[in-house]
């Protein structure tokens, strides 16, 4: 099995440790991982701002980098969803193939690798922030709006981590307010949503806030640090890769 690692642009630039953890975790699990070096971005920042028509060059570059692998794995629900839903390119056949092979890290671990145990350990109280695109878009966990049996692929993995205590939240899947360019275009509401989300985690005793999407966590981190809170954010890949 040949897997390509797709690293979202902001993870590459700001959170290299998340990509490193993803790479190491996959390798620990015996996966042959390649990192196509000329990758840039999935095009979501443009498309969500209404400029999908300007993403052709970016998409072609994406297809060039990620063709020919069995799977493409990405430590971000949002970027994965965007590729799945909106990747179109000059070579449409290759694009379609990529759309069907791209996986967010957690769903790749649970659905493809069928991971049942992990050796990692993380001795903290952790709050899980569900990214909307991972949850409602990729259906990584059940959504509170639906009258359907609960499940959570993310929690399943977190429960395998030794010492980790998952806290309960008052609002299990409310959006954090990042929303791509929304975070600056609607600064006031974005920040208020973030403050409220952080408060929920803090009120329930979280030491760390984790999630599948570093973009949400970057936003929450910005708020936590401004509040000079001791609570930290950490990507799920870093927890799952945390050594014993």
């Amino acid at each position: 099995m040949k897997v390509a690692l797709f690293v979202p642009c902001y993870v590459d630039q700001f959170y290299p440790q998340v990509a490193i953890a993803t790479l190491e975790l996959l390798e620990k699990l015996g996966v042959d991982v390649a990192y196509p070096e000329s990758q840039t971005c999935c095009g979501q920042p443009m498309a969500n701002s209404g400029f999908e028509h300007l993403t052709h060059g970016c998409n072609d570059n994406f297809v060039k980098n990620f063709s020919g692998y069995d799977y493409i794995v990405c430590p971000s629900g949002s970027c994965t969803l965007h590729v799945k839903d909106h990747l179109h390119a000059t070579d449409e056949k290759a694009a379609a193939s990529i759309r069907s092979k791209v996986y967010e890290l957690v769903e790749f671990l649970t659905d493809i690798l069928k991971v049942e145990e992990l050796t990692s350990s993380f001795q903290y109280k952790v709050g899980l922030h569900q990214s909307c695109h991972g949850q409602r878009g990729l259906k990584i966990s059940q959504m509170s709006e639906l009258v359907s049996a609960p499940f959570s692929k993310t929690e399943k993995l977190l429960h395998m981590v030794k010492g980790l205590e998952l806290i309960k939240l008052s609002r299990t899947d409310e959006c954090c307010g990042f929303g791509g360019t929304f975070c600056v275009a609607e600064e006031a509401v974005s920040v208020k949503m973030g403050i409220d989300r952080v408060a929920d985690h803090v009120a329930h005793g979280a030491t760390y806030i984790t999630g599948n999407d570093m973009s949400c966590l970057m936003h929450l981190e910005g708020i936590l640090r401004r509040q000079q809170s001791p609570v930290k954010v950490i990507h799920i890949a870093e927890i799952l890769n945390a050594a014993q």
């Binding site: 969500n48 701002s49 209404g50 909307c132 695109h133 409602r136 878009g137 959504m143 709006e145 899947d173 409310e174 959006c175 307010g177 990042f178 929303g179 791509g180 360019t181 929304f182 275009a185 609607e186 509401v189 974005s190 949503m193």
Partner: peptide, 10 residues
Amino acid sequence: LPFASTLCGS
């Protein structure tokens, strides 16, 4: 108005 959303899907 279409930009007054995070596209969370709720």
